[in-house]
């Protein structure tokens, strides 16, 4: 279970939070004239990287506030938590930190010793 440092309440167990999927996906304004494809991508398509990921969380069993986070999906390490109106931290800030649990490659998974 992760420990998530709510920017309003402090560190709490993951069970108090709900995940809200990818962050920084801008909802197209209703006044915009956009194609079916563009709208469909907003509604249905999200990225799913192995590695650094911007995602949203809400402290649903706490202050009920939404916030953003940068998590390494391969190690589950939370690298940064920031409020919704804070600027998006650039990826290069974390790039040296990627280190998968068993030293496995960035893509794929499995037993390192066997793969080697």
């Amino acid at each position: 279970m992760l420990v998530i440092d709510c920017p309003y309440c402090g560190p709490r167990d993951q069970s108090e939070f709900s995940n809200g999927g990818e962050a920084h996906v801008k909802r197209p304004d209703g006044s915009q004239d956009i194609s079916d494809r563009e709208w469909g991508e907003y509604v249905f398509i999200r990225s799913n990287p192995k590695g650094l990921f911007y995602e949203r969380w809400v402290h649903s069993h706490g202050c009920r506030k939404w916030f953003n986070c940068v998590r390494d999906t391969s190690t589950d390490e939370i690298l940064e938590i920031y409020k919704l109106d804070d600027p998006q931290p650039p990826l290069k800030k974390f790039e040296n930190k990627i280190k998968t649990p068993s030293g496995e490659p960035d893509v794929g998974s499995g037993n390192f010793t066997v793969k080697k």
Partner: peptide, 13 residues
């Protein structure tokens, strides 16, 4: 309620 809160905070702050 959760949906209202989400949009109030994330889309139309």
């Amino acid at each position: 309620l959760a949906c209202m809160e989400e949009y109030a905070q994330t889309e139309w702050p």
